[in-house]
């Protein structure tokens, strides 16, 4: 049972990996590819690590650390890359504005 669950997680992660990495080959903007990489590298890798965690539960501390660092590093890296790619242009008034809260 645990084995099936573990394989499900790993295969789900692999599907995420392929789906999110495939747009890299296209001619879209860097930011669009960054969305795909967010799916592949953060969520897919987290699913794979969860699958590994189900296989070897006795090594949970390191794998939990791997999960945390995956989430934090990849997210921060996505922000840094998005920041570096876009130029600092002041947007005109035609921009749509939503008040989040």
């Amino acid at each position: 049972m645990i084995n099936i669950l573990s394989y499900t997680c790993i295969i789900l992660g692999l599907v995420f990996w392929y789906w999110g990495t495939w747009p890299l080959l296209g001619r879209r903007s860097v930011l669009y590819k960054l969305h795909g990489l967010s799916v592949a590298d953060t969520l897919g890798s987290m699913a794979i690590v969860v699958g590994l965690l189900l296989r070897i539960p006795h090594e949970w501390p390191l794998l939990v650390l791997a999960l945390i660092s995956l989430a934090i590093w990849n997210t921060v890296l996505g922000y840094v890359l998005a920041y570096c790619v876009t130029d600092d242009v002041t947007h005109d008034a035609g921009q749509e504005v939503s008040h989040g809260g």
């Binding site: 890299l24 080959l25 592949a40 590298d41 890296l77």
Partner: peptide
């Protein structure tokens, strides 16, 4: 390994440095 090949090909073919940085980030995680 097959998934790892995709960003490698991307790093080979694309000349733009930011696309290559994306490929690097992807390879590092993978």
């Amino acid at each position: 390994i097959g998934a790892l090949l995709i960003p490698m090909v991307e790093a080979l073919q694309d000349e733009d440095i930011w696309q290559r940085m994306l490929a690097f980030a992807s390879i590092a995680t993978k």
